[in-house]
């Protein structure tokens, strides 16, 4: 007993006394960290301190120091305006539409690709469906134009050839969301299937063999072996997606929308961009952005905690 506690105190002592020594010993490591820390300070933490202008009547020539403080005035205006609820509604509707349609689609795609036994076909399908993920939203928006445009879009060419009347897909409020969701599924489903495919590749072959011996069909094997195998991946991905519900779709909407469909497509982020940078109403748009950042911060933390409670690996 005595010797044990003695060794413990010695260990503690060397640790306590050695902290400075250990820091000096690893001084090169700290030196290496300096550029990254300066960068994160300049491009993340200093901008966070700029959030103060949400509580100011910020004038760019006066700077943060010289601008007048207005407290929560911008937030009061914001929460009292109808525009805000429309923006919030659009953001949530679009995100959930993408989630409900895109999320299961990626899973089904992965399950189907996993059933292909011919490795060349499998690899080719993967290469093709991953491709759109690597194009920018501007490129995809341009491709969407060549498909959906009123005057030269491929779909309208077909409709006209069949004697129908061209449809203004990109300018009709009752169709634009469907186009957004469809294009998003087209671009991201393949890449979203990657994680599930990895989980499926990790399933022991013996499980499938044993099931075959028991007379299971391929479909039964998919239902009873493959799907349970990717269930943990599904739940964690779903939670993380829900945590990021306010952060989805900005670049897509900005690249694809136009004033005719602002009513259904204007989301919080696009509004911040227009009001802040185009109209230069810095304070008000920062208030909208701060609201979004705080809510999504809570959502991300909540979904992570939930993921951890479910026993899955979380973001941290």
């Amino acid at each position: 007993m005595a010797t044990e506690s003695l060794t413990q105190t010695t260990v503690k002592k060397t640790r306590g006394g050695g902290l400075f020594k250990r820091i000096v010993k690893h001084r090169w490591y700290y030196l290496m960290l300096i550029p990254g820390l300066i960068w994160v300070f300049l491009f993340h933490y200093l901008p966070i301190s700029n959030l103060a202008i949400a509580f100011q009547d910020f004038k760019i020539f006066k700077g943060i120091g010289g601008s007048e403080w207005v407290g929560f005035a911008h937030f009061k205006t914001l929460f009292a305006s109808r525009v805000f609820y429309k923006l919030l509604g659009n953001t949530v509707i679009l995100s959930f539409a993408n989630l409900f349609i895109g999320f299961p689609f990626a899973i089904i795609l992965a399950l189907m690709i996993n059933e292909v036994s011919h490795s060349f076909i499998k690899r080719s399908v993967q290469t093709i469906v991953y491709l759109p993920h690597f194009m920018s939203w501007v490129v995809v928006a341009a491709i969407a134009n060549t498909v959906f445009s009123l005057s030269y879009g491929a779909i309208n060419n077909v409709i006209r050839a069949l004697g129908g009347e061209a449809v203004f897909f990109l300018g009709r409020t009752d169709l634009f969301r469907q186009v957004l969701v469809g294009v998003n599924v087209w671009k991201e489903s393949g890449w979203n299937a990657v994680l599930y495919l990895a989980a499926l590749a990790g399933v022991p072959v013996e499980l499938y063999e044993a099931a075959s011996v028991d007379g299971a069909s391929r479909f039964q094997k998919m239902i009873h072996i493959s799907i349970p195998a990717i269930l943990p991946t599904i739940s964690i991905t779903l939670l993380l997606r829900i945590g990021r519900i306010l952060n989805m779709g900005f670049e897509q909407v900005l690249a694809m929308y136009n004033p005719a469909v602002y009513d259904v497509a204007d989301i919080l982020d696009t509004y911040v961009y227009r009001v802040g940078l185009v109209e230069q109403n810095y304070s008000f748009s920062t208030a909208v952005g701060l609201f979004k950042s705080v809510v999504s911060f809570i959502l991300v933390l909540g979904s992570n905690r939930l993921a951890r409670a479910l026993g899955q690996e979380s973001l941290f």
Partner: peptide
């Protein structure tokens, strides 16, 4: 130090404050 970097993944200053910086 790890937390300093992690935090930027969950909380962003947003477009306008970053632009001003």
């Amino acid at each position: 130090i790890m937390f300093v970097f992690f935090f930027t993944m969950v909380f962003s200053a947003g477009t306008i404050p970053t632009y001003l910086a």
